[in-house]
Amino acid sequence: MFRWPYTFAVCLSLAVGATAVYYSQHLDVGLKDPEGFLGPAYVRLPLIGLLIFAVGIVPQSIHRFGFRHFIGGVRTIIRDEWTLKRVGYVAAGMLSFYICYVSYRNLKSYLPELREDVNYDRELAALDHFLFFGNYPAEVLHSVFGTAVMAQVLAVLYVLYLPFVPITVGAVLVLHRDFTVGAWYATAVSLNWVLGTISYYILPSLGPAFFQPQSFYDLPENGASALQMSLFKGAFNFKEDPQGDAIFGIAGFASLHVSVVFTACLFLHYAGINRLVRTAAWTYLGFTILATLYLGWHYIADDIGGLFIGWLAVAVGAFVTGNTRRQKRKRLAANEVEGVRPATEVATTGPSI
């Protein structure tokens, strides 16, 4: 059981799920399945998985069997390559991710109930002011980049995070042939939700756009500002009626936008994914960090905390799924002694921890 790469992820999801259920009962606030990109998470994830499966298998079938026989080729590939074991691993990864995500959203929503009247925005804003030599980061960035085109570009990139997370999880689980690598990424992203929730309770904050909204009045309406207004209305409605349908979704420290994207970057690097994909991910991380400050979502400390959470999630995820360099070398050596070398094994990737 402990050699199964999803043991840690399943135990983590059960623990955080039980915690969410406990506090739901304790506060008398019902659990909610948050709406998002393409609907509820329990619809969104399987749908994305099936879409990625089709995108991956149809071109493969056309390449191997030609246009005239690609339907039969699809059946052949499914019969030969998609065993019940592989389907079970994909399902375990998506289910663990789903439980951790929904639990995270609910535990985040309980923040004003469990940490009432505790807020560190003033201290975090003062730190930003000190680090930028007597200026606030957003004001400096607005002066440097302007408040027209850059605001729209960064808003689009920031909101792109919403589909980015489930799509990357689904893509790695469905397309990567090494089951342990899929488990590694699903576990790392799930850890982001858990570690991020813990950080919210350690240092509760709202973020610059909610604490000092006057600093962002010069920005035009954009997708990010619409999302901020939606979160503000949801927070207000939750405080008015915690038993209602609204979810409190405002929290500054740490930035999970930064942590999850950094997790993806590190994972792609250590797993040896295509260089072009890795370059695109690192570029997106840079724009994400810029957007958090420019649009007022986070303080500098939030982004630093997000980078730490992302690194820790990848390192722990690698260790518990057997994807460190040492574990891979040991497994490869054992296979060579037995005269067996799995085709899906990658012996030289994985973080040095």
Score class of each variant (00 low, 15 high):
269 H>T: 13
52 I>F: 05
185 Y>T: 05
283 T>A: 13
83 T>W: 04
31 L>G: 10
337 V>F: 12
114 L>P: 05
144 V>H: 06
281 A>D: 09
257 H>L: 11
44 R>Q: 04
118 V>N: 05
240 E>R: 15
6 Y>R: 00
17 G>N: 10
29 V>G: 06
275 R>M: 11
344 T>H: 08
177 R>A: 07
320 V>S: 04
43 V>T: 09
171 A>T: 01
206 L>G: 13
327 Q>P: 06
292 T>L: 12
276 L>H: 12
166 P>F: 01
297 W>K: 14
75 R>W: 07
277 V>L: 15
58 V>I: 14
213 P>H: 02
182 G>S: 10
341 R>E: 11
273 I>N: 07
74 V>M: 15
157 L>H: 01
77 I>W: 02
209 A>S: 13
99 I>S: 05
192 N>L: 07
87 V>L: 15
199 S>H: 02
56 G>H: 00
235 A>R: 07
141 L>R: 13
61 S>V: 04
6 Y>P: 08
10 V>R: 03
142 H>C: 02
324 T>R: 09
250 I>H: 10
183 A>V: 11
338 E>G: 08
204 P>M: 12
135 N>G: 00
54 A>C: 12
267 F>R: 06
141 L>S: 11
277 V>T: 15
231 L>T: 08
246 A>H: 09
247 I>C: 08
286 G>Q: 03
224 A>V: 11
338 E>V: 04
160 L>V: 01
336 E>W: 14
276 L>G: 09
180 T>S: 15
121 D>S: 04
219 L>F: 07
341 R>P: 02
20 A>L: 02
108 K>G: 10
322 G>V: 10
277 V>D: 12
4 W>R: 10
159 V>W: 03
85 K>D: 12
239 K>M: 15
29 V>Q: 03
207 G>Q: 05
180 T>N: 15
105 R>H: 09
80 D>T: 06
282 W>Q: 00
158 Y>C: 12
204 P>N: 09
296 G>S: 11
59 P>D: 00
135 N>Y: 14
172 V>E: 00
342 P>T: 03
272 G>W: 04
72 G>D: 14
213 P>M: 03
351 P>H: 03
130 F>Y: 12
139 E>T: 15
249 G>R: 07
147 T>Q: 13
2 F>P: 03
182 G>Q: 02
331 R>A: 15
36 G>W: 04
143 S>D: 11
158 Y>Q: 14
305 G>N: 03
87 V>P: 02
129 H>P: 01
154 L>R: 08
154 L>P: 08
163 P>L: 01
302 D>W: 06
198 I>E: 04
265 C>E: 06
221 E>I: 01
260 V>G: 04
170 G>H: 00
277 V>K: 12
14 L>P: 08
55 V>M: 01
17 G>W: 08
254 A>T: 14
261 V>C: 05
221 E>Q: 14
243 Q>D: 11
3 R>W: 10
353 I>W: 15
36 G>F: 03
